[in-house]
Design a protein around this nucleic acid. Structure first.
Lengths: 270, 270
DNA sequence: GAAATTTCTTGCGATTATCGCAAACTTAAG
DNA sequence: CTTAAGTTTGCGATAATCGCAAGAAATTTC
């Protein structure tokens, strides 16, 4: 008998093992993969596109999609489907449920005011640093195009490297050893040993400074939030390289960010 | 035969009609209701709480929950479940997929710089105005505690009233006629006829001004984005009442917000 | 500290929701 | 106009899900 329908474990990920786990709902899994199929580069999709992206039968994809439409998370205009803002309600639940509005945001704003520079908070997330909040001071343009929910690369940003350095060492090593290294700029470090050294340096310093490896001419500074080995988040700022070339500016950033990190811990939100 | 398992249509919402719609996936529906069960006031829940909130059998709730844990959207610490930041990835997909980072945010910041005051963008969402973006200038403290994904009431905020006035008139009337009116402050208008008049006024003016009905001493100003009768969003600012008592400040806000609304339309994002 | 209560987990068989196919139908492309 | 691609619907086989109920594990109460 030809098994056409296969176990399912995410977008395009073909079933390798088949653990008959009765505690995981297959249908829900597939539904979520349909929701996940909408990303920055695929915000508007037709049914067959979604079917292809998720590896689902068009008929199945359609039913899950219609369920999402029914719930109001997806809109349908003719033959194209797209997310509605309702998805932000879920995000808002996370943000406000974790005191982002009342506790975290003011602390970020305070640090940003001191530094005169935008401060960003990111949390670890599957192969990246996930932006979860940013100060509402003045947008410097450096982080142009990035919003809450943006993912920053682990290897070539200060925030990413700090997460690696302050998290589980084994996980970091596994990441460094296996991930494919993409060069964003000419300055991007793409040798694994050099990356290990950079991460070790950040671990030793308790802060990471990365210059021009993600965007040319831009330097990032990041400090950890949480205990070493159990990092909960990172705080970071970025600005033109020559700004941080001055030692005092760099030092000031570290001091303020560290104090902010401590305040976040003391506020009990991390 | 005792029907114990019932059709399902959301949190706590008991099944009224039972359309055997083959195009809606029941399991997915339930799974999403588990996800939805996490909100601002219930960010950390135990299994049985979730079961109660969703009306699901504990066993079923558990399986759906474990599915979410498996996917990384929910974390489990002992017996309490809570959302992880991964939920923000979905939000980010919506935001960046709709040009929020690169187009909308700069326009908002521009308007905010002109006004020296935070500008908020909200979209219509089931009985409320959903905050989808805010300028990153300086937080005035007026919107303290509100973040992306926050829902503002329809009746007692300028943004909400503008949405009512510029959207489908029948829907607005239905809303006004049936919704229960909650008074946030002593100034809150709670008579339906008075609300109808206020909404009509906003429709006539093409902008809404609401003073102290949501927060005492705070006035909001809002203008629509989109065609009348087919509003896509609203732009708003708020500040202390006496600030807007001066006619020139009010006018300036309207002018800048309207220009921003026009730019948003021309940018093709709405 | 033991009993009582609530909560959580697991197994199971009945039920039924879901699946993929294939055919009908629609829209786009050549 | 013909061909191709995409979408919708029906259908029956299959397998996933369901609620229950019993057992285990906490938590609370006395």
């Amino acid at each position: 008998m030809p098994r056409t329908g296969e176990r399912f474990d995410g977008i395009g990920k073909l079933p390798k093992e088949t653990p008959p786990n009765r505690d995981i709902s297959l249908t829900f899994l597939k539904g979520m993969s349909v929701l996940k199929a909408f990303d920055e580069d695929n915000s508007h999709m037709t049914l067959s596109e979604i079917g292809r992206r998720t590896g689902l039968d068009p008929a199945a994809a359609r039913r899950l999609l219609l369920t999402l439409v029914h719930l109001g998370y997806v809109r349908r205009e003719g033959r194209v489907f797209s997310l509605t803002p309702r998805i932000l309600v879920l995000a808002g639940s996370f943000l406000r449920g974790n005191q982002f509005g009342r506790v975290i945001q003011p602390l970020l704003n305070g640090a940003a005011a001191e530094l005169g520079r935008e401060v960003i908070l990111a949390m670890p997330e599957e192969g990246g640093a996930l932006m979860v909040a940013q100060s509402t001071l003045r947008n410097t343009g450096v982080t142009f195009g990035f919003t809450i929910g943006s993912r920053l690369p682990l290897f070539h940003t200060a925030m990413g490297r700090m997460l690696l350095a302050w998290g589980d060492p084994e996980a970091a090593e596994a990441e460094i050893a296996t991930a494919e290294l993409e060069a964003y700029t000419a300055a991007s470090v793409t040798e694994r040993d050099a990356l290990r050294a950079a991460v070790a340096e950040a671990a030793a310093q308790g802060c990471a400074v990365v210059a021009g490896e993600f965007e040319s001419g831009v330097t990032g500074v990041a400090v950890p939030v949480g205990r070493k080995g159990a990092v909960r988040a990172v705080l970071g700022v970025s600005d033109a390289e020559d700004v941080f070339a001055e030692e005092s500016a760099l030092e000031a950033s570290k001091v303020v960010l560290r104090r902010c990190a401590r305040d976040l811990m003391q506020a009990g939100v991390f």
